[in-house]
């Protein structure tokens, strides 16, 4: 490139060729990057298309009532998704009921109460734990938690609530150990580190000046948290919770081990049930007949739609927080 000016009048053509090559390389690089970005969109469109195409026989055979029909009979090829859909929603809801307060509590502890030297180690530990594969929680649930609940917890709870009208049906039946309750508990255990890691990050976006000013007015720690930090970080916390919910809804392995895979809607939380992902994982390779597989794929399609809505809300909320924090870097 240095001798560009010198040789300009002597031999313009090789340099022109070289510049041309440069230009072509530049253009190709851009094209590659662009098409790789399109791959992302193609993947998304492909997933939607594949799920709809795969589920089509079931969609046209069962129609909309699929969603509220409980029957699941491979022999007569009659399928309805109520049990797995209800199971997915109930387990995720219960898991969030436990994991959200605990996760936020841990985040408050980490940002306000934790002694300095412990802050980083505990924070890092929480983040590392959020990355542990779900199958680990599943195997632990099967071998440790379920037997423990069956022996020590469930009989007591069932006996204690036997005479109370609503609770007796909520905690009824023989103590199997596995079931909806156990699955929800495992789900909450595995989403706790996830929620607390995100919530802590969100809390750290709150400008220290705001907190210091409130402390300066004589507020207590709780008042600073509930009146300044939480309102400021609200959209971020909601976004984080939605992300965790999206995870819980689609979680497969942690649930499959302990839910019992029974296509029946029961009023008792101790009864075995199933979720969408557990049904697919358990039955997919054994599904025979024209409608069995499509019915499972239709469940997958419903799961995808629900998680899409939840995750899109999560993103919107986190985007709101980002905008308030000053936009993307």
């Amino acid at each position: 490139m240095v001798d560009l000016a010198l040789s300009q009048d002597l031999s313009a053509s090789p340099i022109a060729a070289r510049l041309h090559r440069f230009h072509a390389g530049d253009r190709n690089f851009r094209r590659i990057a662009f098409s790789c970005a399109l791959v992302i969109l193609a993947m998304f469109a492909g997933i939607l298309w594949a799920l709809i195409a795969g589920a089509w026989p079931a969609i046209s055979a069962f129609g909309l009532p699929f969603i509220w029909t409980e029957i699941w009979n491979p022999v007569t090829q009659k399928f309805g998704g109520l049990a797995p859909i209800a199971g997915t929603l109930v387990t995720s809801f219960l898991a969030m009921l436990v994991a959200v307060p605990v996760g936020i509590g841990i985040a408050i502890f980490l940002t306000e109460l934790c002694p300095r030297p412990l802050q980083r180690p505990i924070g890092i530990a929480v983040e590392l734990l959020a990355g542990i594969p779900s199958i680990i929680y599943g195997i632990w649930g099967l071998f440790v938690l379920a037997p423990f609940l069956q022996q020590y917890v469930m009989p007591g709870v069932i006996a204690a609530f036997a005479d109370i009208p609503v609770l007796s049906s909520l905690f009824a039946g023989p103590p199997y150990g596995i079931g909806v309750f156990t699955a929800a508990l495992i789900l909450s255990i595995m989403t706790i580190p996830f929620i607390s890691a995100i919530t802590r990050d969100v809390f750290e976006t709150v400008p220290p000046v705001l907190k210091e000013a409130t402390y300066g007015l004589g507020a207590t720690i709780w008042e600073v948290q509930s009146k300044v930090v939480l309102p400021y970080a609200r959209s971020g916390v909601v976004g984080g919770v939605m992300l965790a919910l999206g995870r819980a809804l689609g979680e497969t392995m942690a649930v499959t081990f302990v839910i019992g895979n029974s296509h029946r809607v029961s009023s008792s939380l101790f009864a075995p049930g199933t979720t969408i992902s557990a049904s697919i994982a358990n039955e997919f390779t054994e599904a025979v007949g024209d409608l069995y597989l499509p019915a499972l794929v239709e469940l997958g399609l419903l799961l995808f739609i629900v998680t899409f809505l939840v995750l899109a809300t999560a993103q919107y909320m986190l985007y709101q927080l980002e905008r308030r924090a000053g936009g993307r870097p």
Binding site: L51, G300, F304, F308
Partner: peptide
């Protein structure tokens, strides 16, 4: 969205 989509759906 894909980042947090259920992996079982990707399997399907």
């Amino acid at each position: 969205i894909l980042l947090s989509a259920p992996s079982i759906v990707l399997g399907l």
